Amino acid sequence: MSSINEHNISIDHEKCIGCGLCVKDCVARNITLKDKKAGILAQDCILCGHCVAVCPKAAVSISGYEEEPVPSQGIRLDPEAVLEVIRQRRSVRQFQDREIPKAVLAQVLEAGRITHTAKNMQDVSLIVLDREKSKTEQMAVNLFRRIRPLAGLFNPLARRVPIDDHFFFFHAPIAIVIAAKAPIDGALAAQNMEFAAEANGLGVLFSGYFTTAAGASRKIRKALGIPKGKKAVTTLVLGYPKVSYQRSAQREPLDIQYL
Results as ranks from 00 to 15, higher is better:
203 G>L: 06
99 E>P: 08
230 K>P: 00
166 H>C: 03
253 P>H: 01
93 R>A: 11
69 P>V: 04
248 S>F: 14
204 V>P: 01
54 V>T: 14
53 A>R: 05
74 G>W: 09
91 S>A: 15
29 R>E: 14
166 H>A: 05
109 L>I: 13
226 I>S: 03
102 K>M: 12
116 H>S: 15
140 A>I: 11
38 A>G: 09
121 M>K: 13
183 P>A: 08
198 E>G: 10
214 A>H: 04
219 K>F: 03
226 I>Q: 02
207 S>V: 01
90 R>Y: 06
146 R>Q: 14
177 V>R: 03
210 F>C: 01
149 P>L: 09
46 I>R: 07
138 Q>P: 07
210 F>I: 01
205 L>G: 02
190 A>F: 00
253 P>Y: 05
132 E>L: 06
57 K>I: 06
226 I>W: 01
46 I>Q: 11
16 C>K: 03
39 G>N: 07
92 V>Y: 07
86 I>N: 14
88 Q>M: 15
259 L>C: 12
70 V>K: 12
115 T>E: 11
121 M>A: 14
243 V>F: 09
157 L>F: 13
206 F>M: 10
197 A>C: 02
71 P>W: 09
116 H>N: 11
158 A>E: 03
223 A>N: 02
242 K>A: 15
42 A>W: 10
20 G>P: 09
213 A>Q: 04
103 A>L: 04
61 S>K: 05
232 A>G: 03
33 L>I: 07
23 V>S: 05
15 K>S: 11
83 L>E: 14
64 G>H: 02
82 V>N: 00
114 I>Y: 09
162 P>A: 00
212 T>L: 15
114 I>L: 12
80 E>C: 08
113 R>N: 05
93 R>D: 10
167 F>C: 00
248 S>P: 12
6 E>G: 09
113 R>A: 02
87 R>V: 06
15 K>T: 09
28 A>W: 06
112 G>K: 07
196 A>Q: 02
118 A>T: 13
39 G>A: 14
196 A>P: 00
72 S>D: 12
60 V>N: 06
157 L>W: 13
157 L>S: 11
151 A>P: 04
34 K>G: 08
6 E>P: 02
118 A>S: 15
20 G>V: 07
41 L>T: 10
190 A>I: 06
230 K>H: 11
95 F>R: 06
204 V>A: 03
60 V>M: 07
1 M>K: 09
3 S>E: 12
21 L>M: 14
11 I>Q: 07
193 M>P: 01
26 C>E: 00
95 F>H: 09
256 I>F: 13
183 P>K: 13
190 A>T: 06
248 S>H: 14
56 P>H: 09
244 S>D: 15
250 Q>Y: 10
77 L>H: 13
248 S>M: 10
180 A>L: 06
23 V>M: 05
216 A>H: 03
206 F>K: 05
22 C>W: 04
227 P>A: 07
20 G>D: 08
104 V>I: 15
208 G>K: 11
211 T>W: 08
140 A>T: 08
80 E>K: 15
67 E>Y: 14
75 I>D: 05
45 C>F: 00
89 R>T: 08
64 G>D: 00
29 R>A: 13
204 V>F: 01
45 C>E: 02
240 Y>L: 04
142 N>T: 15
48 C>A: 07
194 E>C: 04
123 D>K: 08
167 F>P: 01
159 R>H: 09
171 H>V: 00
86 I>P: 04
